[in-house]
Amino acid sequence: MRHVRDTAEAYTLLAPSLIGFLLFLVAPIFGVAGLSLFDWNLMGAPSFVGLDNYRELAADPEVWRSLFNTVYYVLLNIPAQTVLALLLALALNRRMRGGKVFRVAFVLPWMAMPVALGIVWSWIFDPRYGAVNQVLGMAGIDGPNWLTDPAWAMPVIASVNVWQYTGYTMLILLAGLQAIPHQLYEAAAIDGTTPAQRFFMITLPLLRPSLFFVLVTNTIGSFQVFDTVFVMTQGGPGGATDVLNFHIYQQGFQLFRAGFASALAMVLFGLILLVTAAQFLYFRKRTVYDFS
């Protein structure tokens, strides 16, 4: 009987978030899946078109371009952000004067509003008056037109987001680092290991759970990049930063093709599901160490 009561209690406690999850996540996903089978301009009556939207998007070069742009963005963003965050975490994972100040400073960008940041960064990257080109100009370098140059626009967007989210990633990795028992390093030092050996044989394996969490959540977030693009480039120049999420917005809320936009959203959903599943499998195969 006690077991039943426990279960009931658990579900009672779960209920609020479960209802929220079903109502605001699961239901809309089904809603979008359904909508993706219709042609609807948001105003008139939707008409059923079966899989036409999916056929159209498979043959649409702009969709493929946005898919490529999204992957390009993820590849620019994730490695840079993770490596930078790891280096920062290692640097801050020691007793030092002012360490806490640095920690706060690195996390601050993460707390700021992406839209406001986008506007500020647009000024900083302004080709004529922006700080970046002013500094480059002092060094005698003629800086490019960052946000209007198709080759530079995406790296700029990616670097702004790296800057914004590295602090958050660093914080999680730092917590992971601090959970690694100190005795391991002492023992290894006695055995005459080099710092590099200690890093690769102790730190990295034991940091795996934190790295996994950071990689999975950041990758999902990266595939959904939107606000920086919306504020800084609107997908331009010439579609160079037209990522999937922006393309969905444009099709849905500027061209009012709700069905087509829903189909695109399902594609993005499927893509993220696949990548996340692959990450899960990769990390599951590795050993997990438990010191608790």
Binding site: P28, I29, G31, V32, G34, L35, W40, L42, P46, Q224, F226, L244, N245, I248, Y249, G252, F253, A258, A261, S262, L264, A265, L268, F269
Partner: peptide, 12 residues
């Protein structure tokens, strides 16, 4: 993105 289109679905 999903949630944006979901908004449209809810609007429907």
């Amino acid at each position: 993105g999903l949630s944006m289109v979901a908004t449209a679905a809810l609007l429907a």
